[in-house]
């Protein structure tokens, strides 16, 4: 395994030089991360083992695992976890399909029509709190445009109480979430589509492949990595989504749209039970860590490939 003079010149600095340098350069960043991320996480883990009721400051004792044991007996926690999964899976799946469809539709747009791409991104840049209010009014039983349209087409015989029905409220919140995050998929897929070589596409069509075959055997393989990465990111984002749900339903009616983040907010900032809220938060963090690990592993595997 010979080494040419050129390779020697281009070789990186000796390892002994690089280790302290890398460490020195990275240390401030790690210090900053430790302060802004590490400390809150560690403190939350600590609080999860404490009776930390802010309204009883003199009664803060170590609780052992009792906060975690209480989770097992708490029907609202299980329900919140289930609702989080339902809304997340629903929103991610539909946004994925819509985002992909729109990306394929706008892929061939040229000239002035290409501006439509920018227009389609508008929901993504709209603040979530604004989206929440927008859909709150759209789904309003009395004055909401959705009921007015449905009535105009004779689809309903009365005005539906979207946000006061246990099932329909979940649908309404999911629709608002889909609206705001579909452009993210569109953006990701549209970018990935530009990477498909035109020659390959043309040669497939010359060989007699139809559009469906082209999509399955050429487009999908090119988009596969983006699909996985975007989906994982959106999964994590939806798990933490708060403003839209809080603005539209405050987690109601009953607890039908109380996701984990809404539940934690209520326990921590309305009931001031930071110990229990931290226990919920730690479990929630564990779920997100699993997803984050999957994301990192996938990224590493694709970069190695």
């Amino acid at each position: 395994m010979g080494t040419s003079a050129h390779q020697l010149e281009a070789a990186p600095a000796p390892f002994r030089t690089r280790v302290p340098l890398a460490f020195t350069l990275l240390f401030p960043a790690f210090l900053l991360l430790a302060a802004v991320l590490g400390y809150p996480v560690l403190y939350s883990i600590y609080l999860s083992f404490v009776n930390a009721q802010l309204t009883r400051p003199n009664d803060q004792t170590l609780a052992g695992l009792s906060n975690y044991a209480a989770l097992l007996d708490d029907p609202l926690f299980g329900q919140a976890l289930a609702i989080t999964l339902v809304i997340t899976v629903g929103a991610v799946a539909v946004s994925f399909v819509l985002g992909l469809s729109f990306a394929l539709l706008v892929d061939g747009l040229k000239g002035r029509l290409a501006g439509i791409r920018g227009l389609l991104l508008a929901p993504w840049v709209t603040p979530a709190i604004v989206v929440g209010f927008l859909f709150l009014y759209m789904f309003d039983q009395q004055a909401g445009v959705i009921n007015l349209v449905l009535e105009a087409f004779g689809a309903t015989d009365g005005r539906t109480a979207w946000l006061s029905d246990s099932t329909l409220s979940v649908v309404a919140v999911t629709v608002a979430t889909i609206w705001t995050q579909t452009p993210f998929y569109l953006l990701m897929f549209a970018a990935a589509l530009t990477a498909i070589p035109t020659e390959q596409r043309e040669s497939m069509l010359i060989d007699g492949a139809n559009r469906w075959n082209e999509f399955v055997h050429l487009t999908v393989p090119y988009l596969r990595n983006v699909m996985v990465v975007a989906t994982l990111l959106m999964f994590i984002r939806n798990f933490n989504a708060f403003p839209i749900i809080w603005t539209m339903t405050q987690g109601g009616p009953v607890y039908s749209t109380s996701t984990l983040v809404v539940y934690v907010y209520r326990v921590a900032f309305q009931q001031f039970d930071f110990g229990y809220a931290s226990a919920v938060g730690v479990v929630w963090l564990a779920v997100l860590l699993v997803l984050a690990l999957a994301y990192v592993r996938f990224l590493r595997r694709t970069s190695l490939a």
Binding site: L33, A34, A35
Partner: peptide, 14 residues
């Protein structure tokens, strides 16, 4: 080394 530095930083911050 980097992990060690991070852990120390976290503990100090905590």
């Amino acid at each position: 080394l980097v992990i060690l530095g991070t852990v120390v930083a976290i503990v100090i911050a905590a």
